[in-house]
């Protein structure tokens, strides 16, 4: 791994008429690293993703600070320069894959559009579709989004996100709309893309089990600040912050796994260990 981090983030953000949502949030993502960003609903996880893409103004928000990425401060880029970063150097995988596809364009057209946003001609779609385990047939691309299942749509979204081989992938709760089997498939797809192409991933989730199985490092977001950040094993084994402990304690018990008493750091620890072991971390 390179010593210089791929992304170095330090931002405060607020929405119009809402007040501060992020208070001096700091974290780094190394080259080819998968970082999990965890927090309950409304803690500001999506706000972080939007700020990296420079899309906060569209939602009526603004941010101050810096976001160093590939030797530049994204927050000081002009609109045209930022547009060339979006989708090209930084890919984005949304939470609701179907809603994030244009209902009146065939998949082929959406693929071409995503390509032409940054390059001439048309993309080499066969290997692309293969790399996300989608059928590499013309008939698949002739479909409209409405005939896709959520799982297929999310694979297609991932294909669009890695189209230009970005250095960083932002995945904002990419599995929360999926059933648990499909969730597992998408998670291993992320791990695969990370291994094969060295794409770094910011994996945003409130699902600790999936974070434990996928991420190298984890940052815990609470009330607009990062309360804890470290290697995934260590955070799950020895959570330092009260909020982290509560999150880990809230992971639902699976019948058959030994969980003797609720509450207390030691039982949290064993529970997290169980999860980590189950996911092969």
């Amino acid at each position: 791994m390179n010593s210089e981090p791929l992304l170095s983030y330090r931002v405060s953000a607020e929405y119009r008429g809402k007040g501060a949502v992020l208070r001096d949030v700091q974290f780094e993502i190394g080259q080819g690293e998968i970082v999990g960003l965890v927090g309950r609903s409304g803690e500001g996880k999506s706000t972080i993703a939007s700020s990296i893409l420079g899309l906060l103004p569209l939602k009526g928000g603004k941010c101050t600070g810096w976001i160093h990425f590939q030797g530049r401060d994204l927050l000081s880029l002009r609109d045209g320069e930022m547009r060339r970063v979006r989708g090209k150097a930084i890919g984005f995988v949304p939470q609701s894959p179907l809603a994030a596809l244009n209902p009146n364009l065939r998949l082929r057209a959406q693929l071409d559009e995503a390509w032409r946003a940054h390059q001439e001609g048309s993309p080499d779609w066969k290997p692309l579709l293969q790399s996300v385990s989608l059928p590499d047939e013309v008939s698949f691309l002739r479909q409209y989004p409405r005939s896709l299942s959520v799982g297929l749509a999310q694979r297609f979204q991932i294909a669009l996100a890695i189209l230009h081989r970005p250095a960083l992938l932002l995945a904002d709760e990419p599995t929360s709309a999926l059933d648990s089997v499909t969730q597992g498939e998408i998670l291993s797809l992320f791990a695969n893309l990370n291994r094969r192409y060295g794409i770094a991933i910011l994996y945003i989730s409130h699902d600790l089990a999936s974070v434990a199985s996928l991420c190298h490092r984890v940052a815990i977001l609470h009330q607009g600040t990062i309360v804890e950040c470290g290697l995934a094993e260590e955070i799950f084994a020895r959570p330092q912050h009260e909020y982290t402990r509560r999150l880990i304690a809230a992971i639902p018990n699976v019948p058959g796994r030994s969980n003797l008493d609720a509450g207390g750091p030691s039982s949290d620890e064993s529970r997290a260990r169980g999860i980590l072991a189950e996911h092969g971390v």
């Binding site: 899309l55 060339r84 970063v85 979006r86 984005f92 809603a99 244009n102 009146n104 364009l105 995503a114």
Partner: peptide, 26 residues
């Protein structure tokens, strides 16, 4: 306000492409 237009921005589409290829067909 829809997800897919925001998504088009997130993929770096220019305003013209958003207008002609995302809004117009709908």
């Amino acid at each position: 306000d829809s997800e897919f237009v925001l998504m088009a921005r997130a993929r770096g589409y220019s305003s013209w492409r958003v207008l002609l290829r995302q809004l117009l067909p709908n």
